[in-house]
Design a binder for these strands. Structure first.
Lengths: 334, 334
DNA sequence: ATGAAAGCGCTAACAC
DNA sequence: GTGTTAGCGCTTTCAT
């Protein structure tokens, strides 16, 4: 059992009795190579199973094709769909997508970014972790010199970082108006607390919706906390038990699923007895209970804009930019 | 606006007036360094924002921490959950997980593997694409010398490749028995065709289930084709319209969702009028229609076994191994 | 059109 | 305990 040594351009060069430079040129389609030589080299290369070591070119400063993607998780259908679209596009451009799950933990995020710098990632797409108010913010995870796109949430990271955000204020406000028009007087809201920029914005939008309908803001109907499936379910059950609200609007993915689960298992009949408006549009929302109304977030445009950034991320002179894409209220049975 | 040159161990060495080797040793915790020197170096390194270029060590033959993961897609909740678990574990061991989506296309798979070899991935976890009977199988995508784990499906790829599979034959057969016991005489099956090893196995299991109940195999009740959401829905509708079967068993993820969707929108009431047994256990199956019965695939053990392989994949002397994990019939309302 | 030399950042193997 | 050298695989630069 003999271990075959790695096949490099020098191996091929020796094998063919020529200089390794000629091999290099032949393989990278440099014009200055005899046509026959080129053929010869290419054939021998595939025969020998030659693989061009990316590390070598990376070390010379030619960069990599590696893109980093930092997400809280990837089971959430929104993140999964975004990752899916982005990864598909990366396939087209021969980018390598390294996915790190931060679990919304700042320290995990830092480590992941560190590793991505070590492999010289071309750019990093990141859903920033929530700001921890207790944290020593003097250490902004040294990431100067990295191309960064912030997704969904925004936080000061680099001097100039691009952000790709969802503009959901109007859709949330629309949701409230819609419920009001259907006769609901007590509308509850479950959302993220103010540690998340998105949490603050969505709550404001909810209040603005109430205002538009000349409804008063009742603190008892507004539930905020760090977002999670369980938190959504807990609050939904509390709202049901308090028996005041006749409708719930959700301001977060996990929250929406948690609340929906609680409602489905509560015995209440969605639509007729109790109104529900979810967040993001998982495919099954359209199948069940005659269709779950929801605030739909545009995944494809987000992914496309992200890719566009990645393709242009060679020149690092991108000025700070913020791109927003509109969410949309989708009214269905509930 | 000046561009800071890259900080390397030599930068630090010059800065401190010492040899770059001492810096290297200090940073990699080599014992032969004065304690004070080590401190000095470490401090200066963080001050300067030093990043250890992974490409350099990789080129020396020290390997990488890169793991490749090839999946058909990542929106399917089974794949998403597997990726999520594996990625989480990778975070713990500082592995870098590169995800490639093959979309079940052989050529995409080949390109992805090629790229992973270029970055010298430590190992590759792959859900093999279906075998294309038309394809020239003389080109088994040269991947000798790569550590490969095959997931879910099995195909001859390397001389010795480990496979981590789901043993679902018993669960499928159980599903048939269960339906039979509940009085169903005409049980339909929708599954992948024989291009997929898993497709063949599952169909056999279905037939074995019928046999156990002394029911005859009726070709009209068995629908197979390349698996997809639409295919599942189409066949489900056909089965309903033919009006023979009183129950459906699904043998595939996408298929299950497609068929379920078709059923939910058909007006049939699941459970009472028509029995349905899905495949894989997406979280929402438990919420709706009083609970969708399903064949549950054990994600966590699969991921854990995979990680175990990855951790041991330094020594390449792993003999060919096949690990199987049992799927389980979960009986709920439908 | 082809070849030789140098160097990217790092560490094992030697000096000292 | 510290420094010097060499070399991983590749391409840019400068000969020829």
């Amino acid at each position: 059992l003999e271990v075959a040594a790695r096949v490099t351009i020098k191996t091929i060069a020796k094998d063919l009795g020529i200089s390794h430079m000629t091999v290099s040129r032949a393989l990278s389609n440099h014009p200055n190579v005899q046509k026959e030589t080129r053929e010869l080299v290419r054939n021998r290369a595939t025969e020998l199973g030659y693989v061009k070591i990316a590390a070598a070119t990376a070390m010379r400063g030619d960069g990599t094709k590696i893109i980093g993607l930092l997400l809280p998780n990837i089971v959430n259908e929104f993140y999964a769909r975004f990752a899916n679209e982005l990864a598909s596009m990366c396939e087209t451009f021969a980018f390598q997508l390294i996915i790190h799950l931060t679990n919304d933990d700042a320290s995990t995020e830092r480590k992941a970014i560190q590793q991505l710098r070590e492999v010289q990632a071309k750019a990093v797409v990141v859903v920033p972790t929530p700001e921890d108010p207790d944290e020593d913010k003097a250490e902004p995870s040294h990431l100067e010199g990295l191309q960064v796109v912030q997704l969904i949430r925004q936080r000061t990271m680099t001097s100039n970082d691009t952000a790709i955000l969802v503009e959901d204020a109007k859709a949330i406000s629309d949701a409230v108006e819609h419920l009001h028009n259907k006769g609901h007087q007590k509308i509850a809201y479950i959302g993220a607390n103010s540690n998340l920029s998105s949490g603050r914005i969505r709550l404001e939008a909810f209040k603005k919706g109430l205002e538009k309908c000349s409804m008063s803001v009742e603190r008892a109907l507004i539930k905020t906390a760090p977002p999670s499936f369980d938190m959504g379910g807990d609050f939904a059950r509390i709202i049901l038990s308090e028996n005041q609200a006749t409708a719930i609007v959700c301001g977060g993915f996990e929250i929406s699923n948690g609340a929906l689960h609680a409602l489905l298992t509560s015995g209440k009949r969605l639509g007729s007895e109790f109104a529900f408006i979810g967040y993001v549009d998982p495919s099954f929302y359209n199948w069940i209970e005659g269709g779950i109304s929801t605030i739909k977030v545009p995944v494809t445009p987000l992914a496309e804009r992200t890719l566009e950034f990645l393709r242009n991320s060679s020149g690092d002179g991108n000025a700070e930019q913020v791109h927003k894409f509109d969410a949309e209220l989708v009214v269905r049975a509930t």
